[in-house]
Design a protein around this nucleic acid. Structure first.
Length: 442
RNA sequence: GCGAUCGUGGCGAAGUGGUUAACGCACCGGAUUGUGGCUCCGGCAUGCAUGGGUUCGACUCCCAUCGAUCGCCCCA
């Protein structure tokens, strides 16, 4: 048997890589405009970082981590998410001693041992950003606005933003008690999952998809009614800024986040009609995380989005990222004699900045032209013995087959000028028609 | 971790317990002299995910394993 890729992984082949490049480019550009700097942390960390950072009782830590022991017996784990490592880095390099706030973003693979399904993989790519050292509601709004901009710019239209506040260590316990008091009498009527959630994580019961559970918990005490005044003020502040920015949202008091570290603001961007997993971006505030990982009491907020899901939603909405540029020039050599000259010509084209190639399979002229056509070469330079003796080449424009014989010396410059001219023409055309061309802004 | 469906050449896709496993696309070559996109001709799976089993005989039936897709849990 030949070896295949591990479960839950995928190859991005060259014919679709441009979609990835496009999303990555837009993400980085949004980050630039929001004034976030990129941080790159290791793909693996000490297991303990995630146990403490993500939370011992979370599904991620309990059953989804890729953990292994290295040759010295250390327990290491492939990162399942980005925030813990960013915070670790922030603390480790004493970045809190520098002017605050710290605004970092990351873009890279994460790993979770889960059953693959649509929009879910074992290795997947997240783009995320964190603001450390500022707890003003305007920061929460900024993070949310950033995600909103990202989605807009990728051409994604059908999504909604759900917002909630999870309170803080002062008010959350009060809500929890009220919740338990309400739910305990209903215990027997709840679904099996919810019964087990009851003592462990009662908040999750509110998020249950089960019809019966939903009915039973319909009039359950809301976290929003139990917020302390600080959290209530903060939540009101976030809403005020979002309203000011014209970002619409739905307050969902039943929304829960999977990771233990969230406090106050929590949000989810949900795609309207895409498979079972509709969440394409999510995040929230985590004011206790830095301290719990051994740093100062520094507030934080962030988000993460899965690129596979963005790509899936884009495909579902018919958004087509700009195609990669075609090959500028294909050099056709006729006969062995001209091959040396052809290789030399090819080299000069490339040195001049053109994307150029030639046939390496010793194909006949016809087949070489066919290859050039398939590669969508804009121009073809044909070099045979006749041309060689005359010191010329045939310059053929593939779009219409117009061909002329030009001096060999002028070939590189001619193709350069023509290609450039084509590009300018394209741009002008797209400006006039108002349609987005390659590299044009949206 | 649980459930459903599925697994035939690079891709799509017929097929039936029994002779050489259709077809389409793609790819490669050819249709005499050095020229693409059309047309025509030819080539392209000693094998039907893997391993067992049933049978005189299995790609076709059974079991297991692996994988894919989708859903649950949970999550980006």
């Amino acid at each position: 048997m030949t070896i295949s890729m591990p479960r839950g992984t995928y190859d991005v082949l060259p014919d679709e890589i441009h979609r990835w490049h496009y999303v990555e480019r837009v993400a980085r550009d949004v980050a630039r405009r929001y004034h976030f700097s990129e941080v790159r942390t290791p793909i693996f960390e000490h297991t303990e970082l995630f146990q403490r950072g993500v939370g011992e009782t979370t599904d991620i830590v309990e059953k989804e981590m890729y953990t292994f022991t290295d040759r010295k017996g250390r327990s290491l784990t492939l990162r399942p998410e980005g925030t813990a490592a960013v915070v670790r880095s922030f603390i480790e390099h004493k970045v809190y001693a520098q002017p605050q706030p710290t605004k970092w973003y990351y873009l890279g693979p994460m790993f979770r041992y889960e059953r693959p399904q649509s929009g879910r993989f074992r290795q997947f790519v997240q783009f995320g950003a964190e603001v450390l050292g500022a707890d003003d509601p305007s920061v929460d709004a900024e993070i949310i606005a950033m995600v909103d901009d990202l989605l807009q710019e990728l051409g994604i239209r059908q999504y909604r933003l759900e917002l909630n506040s999870l309170g803080c260590p002062q008010c959350r316990p009060r809500h929890r008690e009220a919740l338990l008091a309400h739910l305990r009498p209903l215990r027997e009527a709840l679904c099996a999952d919810c019964q087990s959630r009851l003592e462990r994580n009662p908040l999750r019961i509110l998020d249950c998809k089960n019809e019966r559970c939903r009915e039973l918990t319909a009039d359950t005490p809301s976290i929003l009614e139990h917020l302390c005044s600080a959290c209530a003020d903060h939540f009101a502040g976030v809403r005020k800024f979002l309203d000011e920015l014209g970002i619409s949202y739905i307050v969902n008091p039943r929304m829960v986040r999977g990771l233990d570290y969230y406090t106050q603001t929590a949000f989810e961007f949900i795609a309207e009609s895409v498979g079972a997993v509709g969440t394409i971006a999510a995040g929230g505030r985590y004011n206790g995380l830095v301290a719990s990982l051994g740093g100062q009491d520094v507030p934080g907020i962030g988000f993460a989005t899965g690129l596979e899901r963005l790509l899936a939603v884009m495909a579902a909405e018919g958004v087509e990222p700009p195609a990669p540029p075609a090959l500028d020039c294909f050099v056709v050599a006729v006969g062995e004699e001209s091959r040396t000259a052809a290789v030399s010509l090819l080299h000069r084209l490339r040195k001049a900045g053109l994307a150029a190639d030639l046939d390496h399979l010793n194909r006949k002229v016809k087949a070489q032209l066919k290859a050039a056509d398939r590669l969508q070469a804009k121009y073809v330079l044909i070099l045979g013995e006749d041309e060689l003796s005359r010191g010329t080449v045939q310059l053929r424009r593939m779009a219409d087959g117009v061909q002329e014989e030009i001096p060999l010396e002028a070939a590189v410059e001619r193709v350069s000028m023509q290609s450039m001219g084509d590009a300018v023409e394209q741009t002008l055309l797209s400006m006039m028609t108002g349609k987005a061309g390659p590299g044009a802004d949206h």
